[in-house]
């Protein structure tokens, strides 16, 4: 298994995103995703300890190199939820991808909790035709400030729900998003890209 993305020097001390491709089987097997220190940010840890869940969204895209344009060949996405349970003093970790639901159970520290979901994970995404490709991984770490379960569940229901959102959410959401983005709160966003590989 040959890594096509090596950790950059600055990553060693901070967040690490690795997308490793088995070059011999790149056409039949997806890459292995490894991440570390996504929850190392002091604010994230503080919010976790305060009882706010954290959502980590992985979005992996497979791009096909073209002459002028680059085409999005396929994509996949999965979420990880981390929540601290003060009564048991455990960090609970859940991963969800499409119809797969994986409960890692509780961990005593943030570090061990992150090791649960940050370990090598084989993504179900690979080229199914010939060409030149590369993977593009984005990871978003977002505290779920709406600790209220109903708000969470309303959010998980997604845009197919006939109702749009809670009352005033459009106004609150718009202004809140504007302010949080301008002021630099909101979410942390990381990305990594592999080198181009060929499928004959």
């Amino acid at each position: 298994m040959a890594p096509l993305v090596a950790p950059l020097p600055a990553q060693r001390n901070g967040v690490q995103l690795d997308v490793k491709i088995d070059t011999a089987n790149a056409g039949i097997a997806g890459p292995t995703i490894t991440t570390a220190n996504l929850l190392a940010d002091p604010n994230t840890r503080e919010l976790l300890r305060a009882g706010f869940a954290t959502k980590v969204t992985y979005r992996l895209e497979l791009w096909r190199k073209g002459g002028v344009f680059e085409d999005l060949h396929d994509r996949t996405e999965w979420d990880v939820y981390v929540q601290y349970d003060p009564t048991k003093q455990l960090y609970n970790v859940v991963r969800r991808q499409d119809r797969q639901f994986e409960n890692f159970g509780g961990s005593s520290t943030v570090t061990t909790a992150e090791m649960q979901f940050g370990g090598p994970y084989r993504a179900p995404l690979h080229p199914n035709r010939s060409g030149k490709f590369y993977y593009f991984l984005t990871v978003e770490v977002q505290p779920m400030l709406e600790s209220d379960l109903d708000a969470l569940l309303q959010w998980t229901r997604g845009p197919t729900a006939p109702g749009k959102s809670s009352p005033l959410n459009s106004i609150r959401g718009g202004v809140g998003r504007l302010l949080s983005r301008v002021l630099g709160g909101d979410k942390q966003h990381y990305e990594a890209r592999t080198r181009v590989f060929s499928i004959p």
Partner: peptide, 16 residues
């Protein structure tokens, strides 16, 4: 092997 096999229903995993 869940990325290569075919499972029509949901996959639920509880590590504990």
């Amino acid at each position: 092997g869940r990325t290569t096999a075919r499972v029509d229903g949901a996959i639920r995993i509880y590590r504990e």
